[in-house]
């Protein structure tokens, strides 16, 4: 089952404009991670995610949000719950195709849901 989950995440990571993606458990523990080699910009976003993911999820849950997008200087972070116990975070480059990545993330989250449920 994890093999399949890894393939799903690899699939998302292969999309142009997605610089990194992380599947978190609902308590903020990273489950799977796909990142490029050393990149200071991405590291800054990853460090932010590590600190904020639990708080963001709590707030999303409280407000009933299905997506949350955060804009950084060079990147966007899209956070989308993917099942009862998992949440997907994708770090998008400035040139990412908004519509394409949005549709792909929608598809990937439902695939993750099928896989882990």
């Amino acid at each position: 089952m994890i093999e399949l989950l890894e393939r799903i995440i690899d699939d998302l990571y292969s999309i142009e404009g997605i610089d990194a993606c992380i599947l978190y458990r609902i308590d903020g523990t990273p489950i799977l991670l796909r990142t490029p080699g050393f990149s200071e910009d991405i590291l800054v976003v990853l460090a932010w995610l590590k600190k904020q993911i639990c708080g963001v999820l709590k707030e999303m849950n409280k407000e009933g949000l299905s997506r949350a997008i955060f804009h950084f200087k060079d990147h966007k972070v899209l956070i989308a719950p993917s099942s009862k116990s998992t949440v997907l975070a994708a770090i998008l480059s400035p040139g990412a195709h908004q519509m394409l990545t949005s549709i792909e993330i929608e598809r990937i989250t439902s695939e993750i849901n099928r896989c882990v449920s």
């Binding site: 089952m1 994890i2 989950l5 458990r25 609902i26 308590d27 523990t29 489950i31 099942s83 009862k84 116990s85 998992t86 896989c115 882990v116 449920s117």
Partner: peptide
């Protein structure tokens, strides 16, 4: 974590 699903017990 008591949520069911694949990553319930880790």
């Amino acid at each position: 974590i008591g949520m069911g699903e694949l990553y319930n017990r880790t």
